[in-house]
Design a protein around this nucleic acid. Structure first.
Lengths: 211, 211
DNA sequence: CTAGACTGTTTCAAGTGTGAAACACGATGA
DNA sequence: TCATCGTGTTTCACACTTGAAACAGTCTAG
């Protein structure tokens, strides 16, 4: 096991491996070698072994990996062995959509609260999730034991919302506002910029020769 | 102007520059140098000049860039000077949410049709957008002049949907299904995997020392 | 017991992106 | 006219990631 710092690309691949293992597991397979895993899912066997070896010796020489065991290990590494409670800030279209989104519930993420600054929205409900006043953010997230925040507000408010979030002690943030954010390095912010992605597609369509 | 192949990272930055220019433009500024642009928006001036020089000589030595002109140039490069018409496949929660979201916030992208395979959904409407039978995909996208597709179906159907999309002649696809897809290299598929992003946050919270 | 399979680990080459530096050239202003 | 500013362009070093190769150690099958 190497104790060097682990690249985010590595952990992203762990997510993918976990999916593959779930698929194999559903098929009733018990063990899998890195070679067969790579062939089946179009991955690279050397990379699989390297990635896994970062976290321990999970494989058995001459055999491969025990699927059930490896699933459990990766689940634990990724912190998916316990529920996360999520706050979504911004009860606009995107925020409400994400509240309903299955992807959260699927993987042990539960939306516990919505926040907005708009008086008209505060107090209403989206499904079973109540909309709170953003002013009470810190109090509510403590009471609800929330550890992940999602920023779904217009770009011009995102930085100030992030500061509120950071001050409350939350360390993991997903940002959908199309703007770069500045933050201390003890918290993690993942920005998903749909605008850039769309414009990238647009460029592909527009560029002279589609090679 | 270099005519080498242009990295996607470059075009992503163009999107960002365009936003910055819009902001400056709104403030009434007429010209901007790469140096001041970099300082203002925490970018790198050398990179800005390199990126822009990929597409032509937009700047004026001794002066900088004329904001209005550069905005227009980048808009044209990114193909944002005309509307794109979007089809969203999968009228589930995510698909419906995106329909609302794009419809109102993305001025250059207009959602023209929803598709689903579920009889109960076909024929209904989400806002002003009608839900069509996925079987009629090719006919509808021709009639509606659609050039971008968004895949918002469960992972196990994504590959087959992509093949339907590819066969119809659409060249730009945004995929929200958490699965890797295979496709010919004359079409562009951008996968946005919210699951991986969430799990990456989870890992950050779970890892031994939050450095 | 022996042969083969497969992991864990190291090493290396290749590709890519980044950031700094240097410099010619053109534009502006005094 | 001359100094200054800023672009366009090249060059370089550095970092990171990937993929391949090699090899020792360990497990299973026969």
């Amino acid at each position: 096991m190497k104790t060097e710092k682990i690249s985010e690309l590595t952990t992203n691949r762990l997510s993918i491996y976990l999916r593959c293992l779930n698929e194999l597991s559903a098929e009733g397979a018990k063990t899998i070698s890195s070679g067969r895993l790579a062939k089946r899912f179009h991955l690279n066997s050397a990379q699989i072994r390297k990635d896994l070896a970062c976290f321990g010796e999970f494989g058995v020489r001459g055999v491969g990996y025990y699927i059930a065991d490896l699933k459990e290990q990766i689940t634990k590494i990724l912190g998916l062995d316990h529920k996360h409670r999520v706050a979504i800030i911004g009860a606009g279209r995107l925020g409400m959509a994400l509240t309903d989104y299955y992807g959260f519930t699927q993987t042990n993420f539960e939306v516990a609260a919505l926040f907005d600054a708009d008086e008209e929205k505060i107090g209403s409900k989206v499904g079973k999730v109540k909309v709170f006043d953003l002013k009470n953010f810190e109090r509510v997230i403590r009471k609800e034991d929330i550890d992940v925040a999602v920023i779904a507000v217009p770009a011009q408010f995102a930085q100030s919302v992030l500061e509120t979030v950071a001050k409350s002690g939350i360390k993991a943030v997903m940002n959908f506002a199309p703007t770069p954010l500045r933050f201390a390095d003890d918290i993690k912010v993942k920005t998903i910029d749909l605008t850039i992605s769309l414009e990238s597609l647009s460029y592909f369509l527009a560029k002279p020769q589609n090679d």
